[in-house]
Structures are given as structure tokens and as C-alpha cells.
Simulated assay, not measured.
Amino acid sequence: MKLSPEQRIQLHGFNNLTKSLSFNMYDICYTRTKEEREAYIEYIDEQYNADRLTKILTHVSEIIGAHVLNIAKQDYVPQGASVTVLVSEGPVVEVPKASYEESPGPLPDSVVIQLDKSHITVHTYPEYHPDEGISTFRADIDVSTCGEISPLKALNYLIHSFDTDIMTMDYRVRGFTRDISGHKLFIDHDISSIQNYIPEQVRDLYDMIDVNVYQENIFHTKCKLKQFDLDNYLFGYTKDSLTPEQQAQITDSLQAEMNEIYYGKNMS
């Protein structure tokens, strides 16, 4: 809904609040041999190479209504990739629509053109345990904006851009802006949880924990996929090729790994 001139906060100068979203995702896989582990890493490295990550971040820029100024990207040896996109706030002509994109968020219908520099970055970290058959792929995405455009607008798209077992998300508003009377505004939108910006059908798929510091405008949410199907965690074969004992052992290993990542501590 477009705000009327009476409803909109009148600012002194331009909006220079910094809104930062850190989105971390993890994909877990069980690989029985060194060859399978290396094949998994190679597969992940190709699936999320610098070119594909650039497309994802470019679309994030479109969703939040930012203009791309510059892109730097790099594929690393032996694995991993990084992309950095420098963007600026600009007029929102049209926000892309798709089934996986949602409307919630403090993004207004139009914004004033300013040269407020912002950035979007992604780094990937494929790795595997040397002994226990657990392979992990992590992607870290940071979306930092200045002004009225909001990184929360792209959260649902980011969730659907990766095959995600576990997610951790941090959102913070820094700095302040002033209204026309000089009164400081340390936040310019209502938020009680990052979950407010995740569609209900997505929230239903995950167990979620919030750790928020409201008085500091700091919000943290972590998510773990509820349903577990062993076939989704085997690389190159299915559970039918395993004995019941093997299935149970692998299931225990995978769930232990996921719980350790989710709770952020070693449990064994």
C-alpha cells in the first residue's frame, strides 16, 4: 500500500540508515568414500560457481530496487567462489514478480535517488570431514543497503535459491537519520522478528529459533529443516542399497552434524 504524504515520515536530508542482512545456508551430504566426497565437492562447486552466484545477486538487486554499479567475481582453486556487487539506491520502476518472491518488507513504492553506496556479497565454502563421511557446503551472503531500500525484500528469494538444510540469518539496522525537527530515528520500519519476512509456507518447513536484541535493533533467526529423508542426503545412490543398520548409522551421523551446526556447538 502506498503511503500518503501525511503518513510518510518527513526527513531532514536523506535516509542514511544502514540495513544489513547476513544469510548463511548449509547443505549436508553423506559420502562413503574419498572419491564420492571429491565428486560431491566438484558438483557443488559447479552448481554454485561465480557466474551462477552473480545471477542470483543481480536478481537480489532487482528485487530490492537497487542499481548495480560494479561486479567483481572469482572462482577459487581448489574450490569455492566469491562475488561482490556494488549497488546504489535508485527509483523503483518495477519489482520482479515470481512465485517464490513475497511482498512483505519496508520497501516503499518509490524512493528518492541518492548516491548511497551499498553492497551485496557471497562467499562459498565446500568442505568435508576427513574421516566420518560428512560433506558440507556453506554459502554466506551479505546484503547491506543505505536509505529506504531493504535487504529483507529479497529474503524469500535467497531461501529458494539454495538447497538448504540449515539457515542462520542476522539483520541489523545501524546509524540514524533525522526527521524535519531534528529528532533522531534509529529505525524506520516495524519488525519483531526476521520470521515476519518469511512466508508461512516456508516457515512451516523449518524448526526456528529467534535470538533478538530489540533495543539494539539486532535480530537473529536460525532454521533447521523438519523433515528428514535419507535419500536426500546420499550422493549417487539411494538408501535401498543400504542395510537397515547402515541406514540407521548414516541417519544418526547426518542428524548429529545438523544439530551441531544448528545449535552452534559440538555435541559428541
Rank of each mutant, 00 (worst) to 15 (best):
I134F: 15
V95E: 08
N156L: 02
I166M: 08
R178G: 02
V83P: 09
P151S: 05
I149M: 03
I159D: 05
D142Q: 03
M167L: 14
A139K: 03
E102M: 06
I141N: 00
V95L: 07
D170H: 08
L86P: 00
T121Q: 09
G147H: 12
V83L: 09
P96V: 04
I149N: 06
D75Y: 07
S103W: 02
A98C: 05
S135R: 12
M167A: 15
L115Q: 15
T121Y: 06
E132I: 15
S135E: 11
E94F: 03
G133L: 14
S161T: 04
Y171T: 01
T145V: 10
V77N: 09
V173T: 14
P104L: 02
P104V: 05
T124L: 07
V85R: 02
V95A: 06
I113H: 10
L155D: 04
Y128K: 08
H123F: 13
T164K: 06
S110H: 01
S82A: 03
D131P: 05
M167C: 00
G133H: 13
K117C: 00
Q74T: 07
S144C: 12
T177M: 07
K153A: 05
G90Y: 07
G105V: 06
P78G: 06
Q74I: 02
E148F: 12
Y128I: 11
H160Y: 06
S110C: 05
P108S: 03
Y157N: 10
Q79E: 14
K117H: 05
P104F: 02
D140V: 10
S150M: 01
V122H: 02
D109G: 14
D75S: 13
Q79V: 11
D116Y: 07
L155K: 06
K73F: 02
L107A: 09
S99N: 13
G147S: 11
S135T: 15
S99H: 12
V143P: 01
K117P: 10
A98D: 15
V93H: 11
M169I: 10
F176P: 04
Q79W: 12
T136V: 14
F137S: 11
A72H: 00
T136E: 14
D131T: 14
P126K: 08
G147C: 12
V85G: 01
N156G: 03
Y100M: 07
A98R: 13
G147Q: 12
T145I: 04
S161F: 04
R174H: 08
K117R: 10
I166R: 07
